[in-house]
Design a protein around this nucleic acid. Structure first.
Length: 825
RNA sequence: GGGCAAGUGGUGGAAUGGCAUACACGAAGGACUUAAAAUCCUUUGGCUGAAAGGCUAUGAGGGUUCGACUCCCUCCUUGCCCACCA
């Protein structure tokens, strides 16, 4: 057989069918072997896979197959994150319904995965849009209501006018909708929230336990959770009974606070100015600001608008009168929506104070300019220094003073220490059709009534018209909406919002454990066997969203005593993006490469190999049409070597003199390949180690560079090793070659991973590099482990070395065993 | 503005503080061929030299060290994330 694309296509199809039929990659929960759970972030079923999928899932597949050959019982499942808005849009466009469209896409996607040769346990395939799955979404939701973690609240929410739905804070990226990039508006709505904030502390603390997560992801989560220690200080408002709470992390600057600012939306604003002469102007200002979108308010940058209320607050530490202002740079969402302004030590306050000619007082001494006056400041001094103008705290370093001042404020009842979190509760209501119905009924008599557990699932009606004309389609479906109250039996209405799809993906890794269990969410015993996920692989774009939500769900399920662990994913690998011409591949840019076309031209194995070889998994990967030719060529070299140089049933084959050299190279390759994968999934260098081995075989076969002939036994052994090492990466080819060699294993994935013979790694002779004053001057071929005297005997008599040393005295003679000698003269 | 990465040939990239540029792509030359493709062989950081060799080079500058792509400091550039967060 010759190595042509037709041969490859046939054999790839053959092995894919074989794996499917013989369930080669079914995971056995009753196994005695050590377990290994490899998981990739499941795809949204768009129908077509793109290079990002190929990369993500090839990485996972290599790990799964590698671990299986190493003797682990591997769980490697796949499913589809199948609810969501694109299905609704497609349904409108193609005049079909979202369910049909989605299921067709899932089928297509499934085919593509098989064509890539991914080693999934197909019996565990799930789709979140199936009622067998989303029933358990609803079940979790009911449990959350029970525990007080799901609640309904009227509030200003993020609203995407284009998607016509609400968004969670995590879904708003720089003021824009994460999906369609439309500017997000604020809207007052009554919506369902999950109390993720109850878990702030645990979500933050347990990041420490995630030793094998990228620092970057942990930092992003830490910043998102945003824990800050500070003080809530109460400022009495002059001539009223109001006490205005202000949150600050900079209580060290309290003696420098010269005015107070409220957010325009602050609830006290209206009350405070009522009946004063400023009332009208303030109302106008608030009205004006309310029309400016949040993005514009931020984009306005340094220009800060504000208005004086005519009122004064009393600074509790020195009884000074501080004017109360209202300004757009103070946000209602953070802290108490009110700040104490310290213009000398906060740049924003500084700019505002300059603009509106408000007083300033320095309270931290700048070590570089100790005598500067507030009037001469060009900008706020935000670095560290000793306190001044701060009564009994003068002279203390401002950082050290934080705790002391906070304690003093508590003792004096001026304020209390508080911890503030940036993390907000998770808004999960979506005014969309294609999602999990929120299992709640509204009854005039009984109020909010959760659907009883035994009535789950609340099915999503499928014979519904998606018009795209706005409004929730479910609300228009009378058969769905009108029900009897489960409590009193009177007429009642169902909730017509559906859940955010991030709810679905927050626990799917547990459903794979018992994908078909209709009695419970998952089998807790099997979950204890398989979980947590040993290796999770996906894109960095989920660093906050999905990964934070999944951690939250796991902790909740832990509280329900359904799982014993606190964290779902032990190791996380975030793979880099696939680029073309320096830009991210995307449909809108028109620079995509269709994996299917590449498979058609070179086969799945060559595509897999290229994507692994082109860059380390975490880096960006530049697509290169030429380089995939290189992968194809390399595989054809392997094929030809196995086909023409391997001899079955070799007898009376005398060992050759050079066998030791090839054996050395073979063992080096095994060691390097195995280490590279185990110590950091460095597939690119792992592959290069096989290439090096292949070059070495070539050298011996052709007698290049003085290499001598080796025995057939040694050649055979090397060819077998190459095929075994490559098997996780290019499985089709390796299965075929393994059979070609006459091996009887059912599949190559059953073959034990090749062991490295450490004794073969040691050479008799090594090259010693001689440096003189750190510069490379000579090289010697010498026996290993020579003593200093023996080395000197050879090196110091060498003419060249002598020339460089001349008559200078040798100061030091540094030896790096079997590598380098550095002579310092 | 803050945080985190990263900066090495024409390109992708490799180097527990110890021979910088492994491996591959591309390019050039050659063999085979009527020719092309495929395959095989050779060369390939820069400067210099007939050659042996010499000098030089990992964003810039400094430092530590016998020795620095690697560690430390300052700066520059790029990418990503966060951001009037009090």
């Amino acid at each position: 057989m010759s190595y042509t694309i037709d041969t490859i296509k046939k054999l790839e199809a053959k092995w894919q069918e074989f794996w499917r039929k013989s369930k080669t990659f079914a995971a056995d929960s009753s196994t005695k072997k050590p377990k290994y759970y490899v998981l990739e972030m499941f795809p949204y079923p768009s129908g077509k896979i793109h290079m990002g999928h190929v990369r993500n899932y090839t990485i996972a597949d290599v790990i799964a197959r590698f671990k299986k050959m190493q003797g682990f019982e591997v769980l490697h499942p796949i499913g589809y994150d199948a609810f969501g808005q694109p299905a609704e849009n497609a349904a409108i466009k193609h005049k079909t319904d979202p369910a049909k469209w989605t299921h067709r896409c899932i089928d297509e996607m499934h085919q593509e995965f098989e064509k890539m040769g991914f080693s999934y346990d197909w019996d565990r395939e799930i789709a979140t849009c199936d009622k067998e799955y989303y029933k358990w979404n609803q079940w979790i939701f009911l449990k959350m209501i029970e525990k007080g973690l799901a609640y309904k609240k009227a509030s200003a929410v993020n609203w995407c006018p284009s998607c016509e739905t609400t968004l969670a804070n995590e879904e708003v990226i720089q003021g824009e909708c994460w999906r369609c990039k439309t500017e997000v508006k604020q809207k007052d709505l009554n919506q369902w929230y999950l109390k993720i904030t109850d878990y702030s502390e645990r979500l933050l603390e347990d990041l420490e336990t995630l030793k094998h997560w990228p620092e970057r992801v942990k930092t992003m989560q830490k910043n998102w959770i945003g824990k800050s220690y500070g003080v809530e200080i109460y400022f009495k408002v002059e001539k009223t009974k109001e006490a205005l709470p202000v949150f600050t992390t900079r209580q060290d600057t309290i003696f420098g606070a010269t005015y107070v600012v409220l957010a325009p939306e602050h609830p006290l604003v209206e009350k405070l100015v009522a009946g004063t002469k400023e009332e009208k102007a303030v109302a106008q200002f608030v009205e004006k600001i309310s029309h400016v979108s949040k993005t514009d308010r931020v984009a306005g940058g340094l220009k800060k608008e504000g208005i004086f209320t005519g009122l004064y607050a009393i600074n509790p530490v020195n009884n000074e009168r501080m004017p109360i202002w209202i300004a757009d740079y103070v946000l209602m969402e953070y802290g108490t929506g009110a700040i104490m302004a310290v213009p000398t030590h906060d740049q924003r306050d500084f700019l505002f104070a300059k603009e509106h000619k408000l007083p300033m007082r320095i309270v931290i001494k700048d070590p570089k300019r100790p005598d500067i006056s507030a009037d001469d400041l060009k900008e706020a001094f935000e670095d560290e220094g000793a306190l001044i103008n701060s009564a009994q705290f003068n002279g203390i370093g401002n950082v050290e003073s934080l705790e002391e001042i906070a304690d003093w404020m508590e003792a004096e009842e001026i304020g209390k220490k508080v911890i503030h979190w940036r993390l907000r509760d998770w808004l999960i209501s979506r005014q969309r059709y294609w999602g999990t119905p929120i299992p709640v009924i509204y009854c005039d008599a009984c109020g909010v009534v959760p659907v009883p557990e035994k009535e789950l699932p609340v099915e999503l009606p499928e014979d519904i018209k998606i018009t795209g004309e706005g409004g929730s389609p479910l609300a228009k479906c009378k058969e769905f909406v009108n029900v009897k109250c489960p409590k009193c039996g009177k007429a009642a209405q169902r909730e017509t919002d559906t859940m955010a799809t991030f709810f679905d993906s927050s626990w799917y890794y547990l459903r794979y454990i018992s994908a078909h269990n209709d009695k419970e969410i998952f089998d807790t015993k099997d979950a204890a066997t398989w979980m947590p996920v040993d290796q999770y692989i996906g894109g960095i774009e989920h660093a906050i969203l999905h990964l934070l939500y999944s951690r939250f769900f796991t902790k909740f399920l832990n509280d329900l005593k359904l799982v014993k662990f606190e964290e779902p994913f032990t190791r996380l690998l975030t793979q880099g993006m696939v680029l073309k011409d320096g830009e991210v591949m995307s449909k809108s840019k028109g620079n995509t490469v269709d994996p299917d076309a590449v498979i058609g031209k070179y086969g799945a194995d060559a595509l897999r190999l290229f994507i692994l070889f082109a860059a380390p998994p975490e880096d960006q990967l530049e697509w290169n049409d030429n380089a995939i030719e290189g992968s194809w060529r390399f595989l054809s070299r392997v094929w030809n070597l196995a086909e023409t140089k391997y001899q079955k049933d070799v007898k009376d084959d005398a060992p050759a003199e050079s066998d030791k050299d090839l054996e050395h190279d073979r063992n080096v390759a095994i060691k390097k390949f195995t280490d590279d994968i185990e110590k950091g999934f460095k597939f690119n260098t792992a592959i290069s180690s096989i290439m090096v081995l292949l070059n070495s075989v070539d050298k011996h076969l052709k007698g290049k560079q003085g290499a001598k002939a080796v025995s057939q036994t040694a050649i055979n052994k090397t060819i077998e090793t190459v095929i075994m090492l490559l098997a996780p990466m290019t499985p089709h080819l390796c299965e075929e070659l393994w059979k070609m060699l006459g091996k009887k294993d059912k599949t190559i994935s059953d073959v034990a991973w090749p062991a490295c013979d450490e004794s073969m790694l040691v050479l008799d002779e090594v090259q010693i590099v001689v440096q003189i004053n750190g510069k490379l001057r000579a090289k010697f071929q010498m026996p290993v482990d020579l003593s200093e005297e023996e080395l000197k005997e050879v090196i110091l008599v060498d003419d060249k070395v002598k020339e460089y040393i001349a008559d200078k005295p040798i100061k030091r003679f540094i030896i790096i065993p079997n590598k380098i000698v550095n002579i310092v003269v």
